[in-house]
Design a binder for these strands. Structure first.
Length: 874
DNA sequence: GTCCTCACG
DNA sequence: ACGTACGTGAGGACT
């Protein structure tokens, strides 16, 4: 029999943690549910990860504990538990009952003490003990059999403290954690400690002397006058603090560990509770497609002869496909409705009907789609053109809130309390079991989607109008969808021969590097495995680890670069990594994506990023190498699809900083762009107070990094990392920068304040991003939201601008009667292919259209280049 | 499936 | 004191 394993959870601590990590959620009856939800997520994760045989949740009992008799102010000055959290505790108890997890509390004792006592008992009985809490104090319980897991950030991320990990982190044994607390105190529990002693000093003292007692025995040996004085004067406090921080391991508990076995959840009760709390996603996970909600019967007419049906001037439609990749998938058919009757037209019927094709093409016949780009591109592949899209459910949902995740029509419909529809997973199955169902089922499914679109259209349009986002949605995103559909269908011609040749060269060099690395390491190993590589570098060779990850040593490039001078193997590993990446991701990866027409057809996700940018998948053509020459050569494989044509690329220069200049209205920054100066040099001049000739390359590099940092929502730490300087130095640069550009400083402060008040930020075209964490009491979450508040309007406005430019460009090409085709968008650049004799025209119109897409208080600047391949456009 | 690493803007 | 730069997608290792 395998070893018994008991998990001990600190109920109060985890509930607090969950409460503050998540935004306030409520169900229909107005009860707050965020802590319950977070707690449930944690619990499920723990049950899945640890698979315990025994389990207990310990709660703090009442107001006073035995610690208060030692120190009446223990835990004094604590904020009252927010009522939004208090009301959730009864539900947590119910939840645990439903899971059949024992709970326990003991008068005069805290949860810590119950856990401490049981962990000791469990340990003694040879059980594996896992303690879970949000309170680092509990790390004192770590032992060979007891692992203490402390929540890190978010709600499911746990840091595991074994004695070895405690030693690693603090250089102390678990029991010495108590001494550390005794010396440094703990403001959150109102434990005083010794004034002037923080974590650093406490650890130093304990490393030298071992314990609080030993420190005081050797008081005269302690260095530092002030420190000695503080210790002497506060001896009593130190010892009392140590007592307060000590977890009781002999609490008079009245339960036996043997009775804490875990039988697993009572599914019925859990389900009922989830329903009461309206935990939709958790409910879905529970009952995977076995039973779905009772769905109203609908009547879908399967069309065999299109001539017998009447098509209205306004219809909702959905092109039904099994595969999400609409550029490759077979089409089953089209579900349609005019609000009264619902029909399904099998695709073989569609393709033969001129009547249908004519209706689709007719701009005057208004179409409401689930995903207009997918409908447009999938039908265009078969020579059917669709015009007159009037509504797009995917885009409407995304514009209303970019964080809404759109997996299928059912998932979105549910958000708007529309349930008369099934999820794709239910209809098709998932994983290996995914298969095409019969026509009746498909017709019903597609018909319901069309019906959902019909019903949801007014709701979403109202919402967009209320938010003043209708124009963004209707005049920017919808027209763009069609253009993107065309771009995706066009695809980029890819020269397989060039890819192969680069691949052959790379493989040969990788083989060479591999044998050199093995020789230097003295053994063979998998260089691609961070784990194995870490062992070789930091254990076998004995290099000093600089950074660690959750699971071991970090071997990331920035870490290895710092070690480059320590051992010659590092350089070879870095090269191996770099070339390996090129070979696997780009040579092998792209080769697999070339279609029969010799082209790569990426798909642009238009409803995914939180900022309004596009993303590119299957494959990603927005991250083709350019920074290093080795990788840049891959771009030579992207060529025009017609003989005699050329590639033409145009990119915005410094678009994000220009947007910042405009939005912040900072006079100096606006002037810099109006004068047409190199912005980084100009920044360096202003920040360092030198003239143009006084700007060294190092000063420009620093200014550039600070400019980047500003756009990202700066932090001294982030800047210090990117410049490899200390935090203090980085902080100084930032201060000087913000003094130099007071408008920028004001903007950053205003945008954060505004986000706190409204709960969201907007771009120039009114794109929104909600930032619930901006009022979080959790420092990390809040800081992240603040940086996002600073960055999103900038990145998002830049995205708005290039989207507008794409629409204008498409119109302009038509207007000028050019054959030039748009091929790609890479955030701030557009790539075209064009007949040679149109190049002169493009040189003129592309910059013009892009630069005037939107008028700012600073000029936009576009640079262009053309050549025989994408590589040549530099 | 998740983590780490690394490619791009 | 906290542990971070903003936004993405993909491949390989490992569980």
């Amino acid at each position: 029999m395998s070893k018994e394993k008991i998990v001990l959870l600190d109920g109060n601590s985890l509930a607090y943690r969950a409460f503050f990590a998540l935004p306030l959620l409520t169900n229909d009856t107005g009860i707050h549910t965020n802590a319950i939800y977070g707690f449930t997520m944690m619990l499920q994760n723990i049950l899945k990860e640890e698979k315990p045989t025994h389990i207990l949740v310990a709660w703090d009992a009442g107001k006073t504990t035995f610690r208060h008799s030692t120190f009446s102010e223990y835990k004094g000055g604590r904020q009252k538990t927010p009522p939004e959290l208090s009301e959730q505790f009864p539900y947590l108890r119910k939840l645990l009952d439903a899971f059949q997890i024992p709970q326990y509390e003991l008068d005069q004792y805290e949860a810590d003490d119950i856990i401490g006592t049981l962990s000791k008992t469990g340990d003694a009985e040879g059980m594996e003990v896992i303690v879970i809490s949000g309170d680092k104090d509990l790390t004192q319980l770590a032992s060979d059999n007891t692992t203490v897991c402390i929540t890190r950030k978010g709600i499911t991320d746990l840091e595991k403290y074994t004695p070895a990990h405690v030693m690693d982190k603090y250089g102390l044994s678990p029991l010495q954690i108590i001494d550390m607390k005794g010396l440094m105190g703990d403001p959150s529990d109102n434990i005083p400690g010794v004034p002037g002693v923080g974590e650093k000093t406490a650890i130093k003292l304990l490393k030298e002397y071992g314990s609080v007692e030993k420190v005081y025995e050797s008081l005269d040996k302690v260095s530092g006058k002030k420190l000695k004085e503080n210790l002497t004067e506060n001896e009593e406090k130190a010892f009392m603090s140590k007592r307060l921080a000590t977890i009781e391991v002999n609490a008079p508990i009245t339960i036996s560990i043997k009775n804490l076995d875990y039988p697993g959840p009572d599914e019925e009760n859990v389900k009922a509770l989830y329903e009461e709390l309206q935990f939709k996603t958790l409910l879905e996970k529970m009952a995977p497609q076995t039973e779905s909600e009772p769905i109203k019967e609908i009547n879908v007419h399967i069309v065999t002869d299109p001539d017998t049906i009447e098509l209205a001037d306004e219809m909702a439609l959905h092109v039904e496909m099994i595969d999400e990749n609409y550029l490759a998938s077979e089409i089953s058919g089209i579900g349609m409705t005019d609000g009264e009757t619902i029909i399904f037209i099998p695709f073989e019927v569609v393709i033969k009907s001129d009547k249908l094709k004519k209706w689709f093409q007719d701009e005057q016949k208004r179409k409401f789609a689930t995903d207009s780009k997918a409908s447009y591109a999938s039908l265009l592949r078969h020579g059917i053109e669709v015009n007159g899209f009037e509504f797009d459910l995917l885009l409407a949902t995304y514009i209303a809130n970019p964080s809404s995740s759109y997996t299928d029509v059912a998932s979105v419909a549910k958000e708007f309390n529309y349930f008369d529809i099934q999820s794709d997973e239910v209809v098709y199955g998932k994983g290996a079991k995914k298969a095409l169902p019969g026509e009746e089922t498909l017709a019903d499914h597609a018909g319901r989607k069309a019906q959902a679109v019909w019903k949801l259209k007014p709701i979403l349009e109202d919402k967009l109008r209320d938010n003043e986002q209708f124009e963004l949605y209707r005049e920017l995103e919808m027209p763009l969808a069609k253009i993107l559909g065309k771009v995706e269908t066009t695809g980029v011609k890819t020269d397989l021969g060039i890819l192969r040749q680069i691949g052959i060269d790379l493989s040969a060099r990788l083989l060479e590097l591999e044998s050199i690395i093995y020789e230097m390491a003295g053994q063979k190993f998998n260089i691609n495995s961070p784990k194995q590589l870490g062992e070789i570098l930091f254990e076998k060779i004995g290099l000093t680890p600089i950074k660690k990850t959750k699971t071991g040593y970090s071997t990331a490039a920035d870490v290895l670069e710092k070690l480059e001078s320590e051992h010659e193997i590092i350089g070879f590993i870095l090269t191996y990594r770099q070339l390996g990446k090129l070979n696997s991701t780009y040579i092998e990866g792209l080769t697999k994506e070339i279609h029969e027409d010799g082209k790569i057809h990426t798909r642009f996700q238009q409803a995914l990023t939180q900022t309004g940018r596009l993303s590119s998948i299957n494959p990603n053509l927005q991250n083709i190498p350019i920074r290093l020459e080795e990788g840049r050569k891959i771009r030579a494989a992207f060529v025009p699809s017609e003989p005699g044509w050329l590639m033409f690329a145009a990119d915005y220069s410094q678009i994000e900083l220009r947007v910042l200049a405009h939005m912040s209205q900072d006079e100096k920054m606006i002037a810099a762009f109006q004068e047409g100066e190199d912005i980084h040099t100009k920044t360096a001049m202003d920040v360092f107070g030198v003239d143009k000739d006084g700007v060294s390359s190092d000063m420009r590099r620093t200014a550039k990094a600070v400019n980047f940092g500003i756009v990202y929502g700066i932090s001294d730490y982030g800047l210090s990392q990117s410049l490899n300087i200390t935090r203090k130095e980085a902080g100084k640069f930032i201060d000087t920068y913000l003094e130099t550009f007071p408008g920028v400083k004001q903007y950053m402060e205003d945008i954060v304040a505004d986000a706190k008040m409204k709960g969201y930020v907007v771009t120039m075209m009114n794109r929104r991003r909600y930032l619930p964490d901006i009022t979080s009491s959790n420092f990390n979450l809040r800081s992240f939201a603040e940086r996002t508040a600073m960055n999103t309007p900038i990145q998002g406005t830049a995205a708005d601008i290039i989207k507008k430019a794409m629409i204008d460009m498409d119109a302009r090409l038509k207007e000028e009667g050019l054959q030039t085709r748009m091929l790609l968008q890479v955030h701030d650049e557009l790539i075209f292919e064009a007949p040679e004799d149109e190049i002169e025209k493009l040189k003129e119109i592309v910059p013009e259209v892009m630069e005037f897409a939107l008028t700012l208080d600073v000029p936009l600047k576009v640079e262009w280049a053309y050549g025989l391949s994408w590589y040549e456009t530099k």
